[in-house]
Design a protein around this nucleic acid. Structure first.
Length: 645
RNA sequence: GCCGACGUAGCUCAGUGGUAGAGCAACUGAUUCGUAAUCAGUAGGUCGUCAGUUCAAUCCUGACCGUCGGCACCA
């Protein structure tokens, strides 16, 4: 007779196999009303299924975060039923819960449009109001295939055909409607509630493969209650306000135009920001034993053939030819083969290792048109790239050193938290399995030494080696993969790099490909969105504006601005014939961190009224003190004396 | 690259089969003002490009380019 252990440690005994719902009722009527699903030894199940064996039990109610997944999954089913009710010619495929919501992929000659949403949502509300129970049925494979094929649901039939032998095939009914699904589901369609909204339509390939048919996907969001839904919609609006493309235009940082698709025109203010980041990175690298180099943009295809990139990435390379010569050159899509060329000049000694070769390398890649996105995904970009040539037994120490540097840099840019993913061997790869074994092992040992905990990202490594990926989290909770550290035993072999060891013999170095920001373009996009354009003083393109109240203060304002410029600050002077209210508004909207207001009083007393972005308070300071204070505040974090960090 | 939507002044957006408007920005003038929009005036557009339909196209049709949202891709 089964016994169930509850979260409080108490045990309930039954003389039969009760359903989850029965068990909940036995515990209490409140729980019986609230329970949506039951977790049996860690596995979430429908309340209707009998519990045959002894198990640890807990219930999921609407108060649990886990309810979200159930609600979203059920919402996907309700969406599918609604769509088939309204558009009977539509085939259903799959519809999972995802972060923040759910989607369902439909096969239909005519794709859906957002104009269809009101009708579909109304139908969904009807289905939810009908409160039909979800009923689980176990089917025999052939019967299930015949059933779906007969209904013209060929995708469902294909899914069943491809299920591994021995897999239990379950269908769920909700009223008249039925779908193949492994579950679990809540009790009834009514449990979905009313906190959902259809968001957008999109094309999506069947089974995520671009060789397959394009399906019509409908995305929705669903939450436990209206309040959560509204909070989510507000968060989306917030993200739109932060959009780097919008801020880039509003703050006059950069633009992109048709004649140079995927390349950035940096305006003076955007370039100021770029240069601050670059200068900071250069100082950090200098201080960490890197040697900066610069390598050619145009490189003969022979080198790319030797490196293996020509074979794998040719379609993504910009090719250049001249009429005079037969040569085919490619704009470099990456820097590593060029760095190996520098390494190969002369004879290298083990004494030079680890050799850390850095380049702010400008690269070009012909990215698919649909991948382009503002300055985040472009065709011309600059990596904060470096390659560490080292011996195999130096991988661990170099990894530790790199992770420390990376953490420091992320903190300085305002990203205190990051996580690490470990990507191991992909299906298509260079190098023997023995080499991959060694590379993966070296990297995982290095992680252990560096105290890095990671999540595994199977099969996502580069074709030449495994990699660590560093993912930071921004101010509104979005994850961005920026840094990377890749172990490469292959390229030194292919490009014949070697060094003379202690034993006098030639050895292959290992290459560690590594980047911290990834690309400047993308990282600046992330920075813009993370700070919502309100940069910390050391990064702000315009750090301060001196604004006059009356034109009598113009010459004093210019003098104030000059003093600040001498102290190294980027300052503008606003002597326009405008009221101070208008000036405050203009510069606040432009996200200028510091406003120095000067009128007759300040001009006479040699002071400034200092106002911070976002605050209404003003502080009247002697000019000298204001300059000293702002100069200190605008100091990049790596240049602050130790006691101030 | 694939599916869909979109493209009107610098920006945000109206609008119509008879060659276009608003607000903000810009410019000019007045105003000299104490912390988120002073007032008045002026100027600004081959309505993404190219074809087609039509007496007539910014509007209808098609192709292309670009942008946006996804998918696929991301050395």
């Amino acid at each position: 007779m089964p016994a169930f252990t509850l979260p409080d440690g108490s045990v309930r005994h039954f003389d039969h196999a009760p359903s989850g719902a029965e068990l909940a009722a036995a515990i209490g009527p409140g729980l019986a009303r609230a329970a949506l699903a039951v977790v049996v030894d860690g596995e979430t199940r429908d309340l209707s299924r009998p519990l045959e064996h002894d198990a640890a039990i807990r219930f999921i109610t609407r108060r649990d975060e886990e309810a979200l997944t159930l609600i979203r999954h059920d919402a996907a089913h309700v969406l599918a039923e609604a769509v088939q009710a309204l558009y009977p010619e539509t085939q259903v495929t799959i519809g999972p819960a995802i972060e923040n919501g759910f989607y369902y992929d439909f096969a239909r000659p005519e794709p859906f449009t957002p104009e269809d949403f009101p009708a579909i949502e109304a139908k969904m509300r009807d289905i939810i109001a009908a409160n039909a129970p979800f009923v689980r049925e176990v089917w025999e494979r052939e019967a299930a295939i015949t059933f779906f094929a007969a209904r013209g649901e060929h995708y469902k039939a294909e899914i069943i055909r491809d299920l591994p032998a021995g897999e239990t095939i379950t269908l769920y009914r909700q009223g008249e409607w039925v779908d193949l699904c492994r579950g679990p589901h809540m009790r009834t369609t009514g449990d979905v509630g009313d906190a959902f909204k259809l968001m957008k339509v999109a094309g999506a390939y069947w089974r995520g493969d671009h060789r397959n048919a394009m399906l019509s996907r409908i995305y929705g969001t669903a939450w436990r209650d209206r309040k959560e839904l509204d909070a989510y919609l507000t968060q989306i609006e917030e993200a739109e306000r932060r959009d780097h493309r919008r801020l880039g235009r509003e703050m006059d940082l950069f633009h992109i135009q048709e004649e140079a698709v995927g390349s950035v025109f940096w305006h003076p203010k955007g370039w100021a920001l770029y240069r601050r980041v670059e200068a900071y990175m250069r100082r950090r690298l200098d201080a960490n034993g890197y040697q900066e180099v610069r390598t050619p943009q145009l490189v003969d295809r022979a080198l790319w053939e030797a490196s293996g990139h020509w074979e794998k990435f040719r379609e993504h390379m910009f090719i250049a030819t001249v009429e005079e010569e037969e040569k085919t050159l490619a704009l470099k899509p990456m820097n590593c083969p060029c760095h190996v060329q520098i390494f190969r000049q002369g004879v290298r000694s083990y004494r030079e290792l680890p050799l850390r070769m850095a380049e702010f390398g400008a690269c070009h890649r012909y990215e698919p048109s649909g991948a382009l996105h503002g300055i985040m995904r472009v065709r011309a970009f600059t990596q904060d790239d470096a390659h560490i040539f080292c011996a195999e037994d130096q991988i661990a120490a170099e990894t530790v050193r790199f992770v420390e540097l990376l953490g420091q840099i992320y903190r300085d840019f305002g990203f205190p938290d990051f996580r690490v993913k470990f990507s191991d061997r992909p299906l298509i790869r260079a190098g023997s399995d023995a080499v991959w074994d060694r590379a993966e092992q070296a990297l995982s040992e290095a992680c252990a030494t560096a105290g890095v905990t990671y999540t595994l990202n199977p099969g996502e490594g580069a074709f030449y080696g495994p990699k660590l990926e560093f993912v930071l989290r921004d101010a509104i909770g979005r994850d961005w993969q920026c840094g990377t550290l890749q172990v490469d035993f292959v390229l030194p072999e292919r490009l014949d790099a070697d060094y003379v060891g202690e034993d006098g013999a030639r050895h292959r170095p290992v290459m560690l490909h590594r980047a911290i920001l990834g690309s400047f373009e993308r990282f600046l996009g992330i920075l813009i969105e993370h700070h919502a354009g309100r940069f910390p003083l050391w990064l702000a393109p315009v750090q301060a504006v001196v604004a006059t109240i009356v034109s009598d203060a113009d010459s004093y304002a210019e003098a104030v601005a000059a003093r600040l410029r001498e102290a190294g600050l980027a300052v503008e002077c606003d002597t326009r014939n405008e009221k101070i209210n208008a000036k405050v508004r203009t510069h606040s909207l432009a996200h200028v961190p510091v406003l120095l207001v000067v009128g007759r009083k300040e001009a006479e007393s040699g002071t400034v009224a200092l106002r911070r972005l976002g605050g209404a308070a003003q502080e009247v300071l002697a000019l000298d003190e204001a300059v000293a204070r702002l100069a200190r505040e605008a100091t990049p974090p790596d240049l602050l004396p130790a006691w101030q960090r």
